[in-house]
């Protein structure tokens, strides 16, 4: 390989990001707690471009102004967050997180629960949208019933604000896009064909209790207690700082002392709560309620 060909290939592979795109990335992290690493900046650019087309804006600099100084900034931020999270929901959305729950978190929780002599698990999918997340969790738990969960019972609470999403979830029929990551084993075991779609098995449905809940409803949140795990993915990004803190406080209160909180991929609690401990698992992170040993 010549020096020149090496150089030109390297140059092709990289173009420095627009400084205003980097500012938009930082703004989204600051406001919504969701971070786009350098390799995801292109995806963020595409999302911004869609919004810029709608607003007839030509430069990232002008769009950054829209998100910060213009009178529409609040509405525009929500519109951009919608673009960012659109199409995110699917079965087995975050495989490292699922592996972490199954292989690392579940044994730890069972150990602690066994000490309480309560062989029952309570899991909450907060902001479950159309149900892919709680059903994924349920299938994982069912896979464990012959081994780790032998002699245990479990329930999955799944809540969302949107009635239409909840109806979709209760109906349990999913298209190819929603099931694109579904492993063949799970497809065969827990689904039946329904035209071009897939219908979730009735047995899986029976374990998941869907209900409507607004996470800012202080009274109703008090009833979410005795939980081992909460999953709340790409939901808190829409809340302002104060509401986010209140919701996280409710999560903290609702979890048992050994409880875990899982957020969406690249979503962080930095600056929101210091009550939870950030822990690393293979290619994923989680927040743990317990106190540090040091």
């Amino acid at each position: 390989m010549t020096v020149l060909s090496a150089t030109s290939r390297a140059v092709e592979s990289f173009a420095a990001p627009d400084p205003f795109m980097v500012r938009i990335r930082d703004l989204i992290y600051q406001v919504a707690g969701i971070f786009h690493a350098d390799n995801k900046l292109r995806a963020l650019e595409e999302r911004c471009m869609r919004r810029m087309q709608v607003l007839a804006i030509k430069t990232y600099r002008d769009y950054y102004d829209c998100l910060t100084v213009k009178s529409i900034r609040q509405a525009e931020l929500v519109a951009l967050l919608n673009e960012i999270t659109i199409g995110e929901t699917c079965f087995f959305r975050n495989q490292p997180q699922i592996d972490g729950i199954r292989n690392i978190v579940l044994p730890k929780i069972l150990e602690q629960r066994a000490k309480l002599s309560l062989r029952h698990l309570r899991i909450w999918s907060a902001g479950c949208s159309t149900g892919e997340e709680p059903y994924t969790l349920c299938m994982i738990m069912l896979e464990e019933t012959a081994t780790r969960l032998k002699g245990w019972t479990f329930e999955i609470l799944a809540t969302d604000l949107n009635e239409r999403s909840l109806n979709h979830a209760k109906n349990g029929v999913y298209n190819a896009y929603s099931t694109r990551n579904l492993p063949a084993l799970f497809r065969e075991k827990y689904f039946a064909a329904n035209g071009n779609d897939l219908q979730i098995d009735r047995n899986v449905k029976n374990y998941v209790n869907f209900s409507r809940l607004n996470l800012t409803d202080e009274t109703k949140m008090l009833f979410m207690k005795g939980l081992d795990m909460i999953l709340c993915c790409n939901v808190l990004i829409y809340f302002d700082g104060a509401s986010k803190k209140r919701v996280i406080q409710h999560f903290y209160n609702g979890l048992l002392p050994h409880g875990y909180l899982f957020l969406g991929h690249s979503e962080s609690l930095y600056g929101v709560s210091e009550d939870f401990r950030l822990v690393h698992m293979p290619s994923s992170t989680a927040y743990v309620k317990g106190k540090r040993n040091v």
Binding site: N103, V105, H280, S283, A286, R292, V294
Partner: peptide, 23 residues
């Protein structure tokens, strides 16, 4: 080193454990 090993840059080995870097 620990962070890399937990983030998919661990010599092709996936360490099946949870770590709290602050501990």
């Amino acid at each position: 080193d620990m962070l890399c090993r937990m983030s998919g840059l661990g010599h092709g080995i996936t360490e099946s454990r949870q770590i709290d870097l602050l501990e």
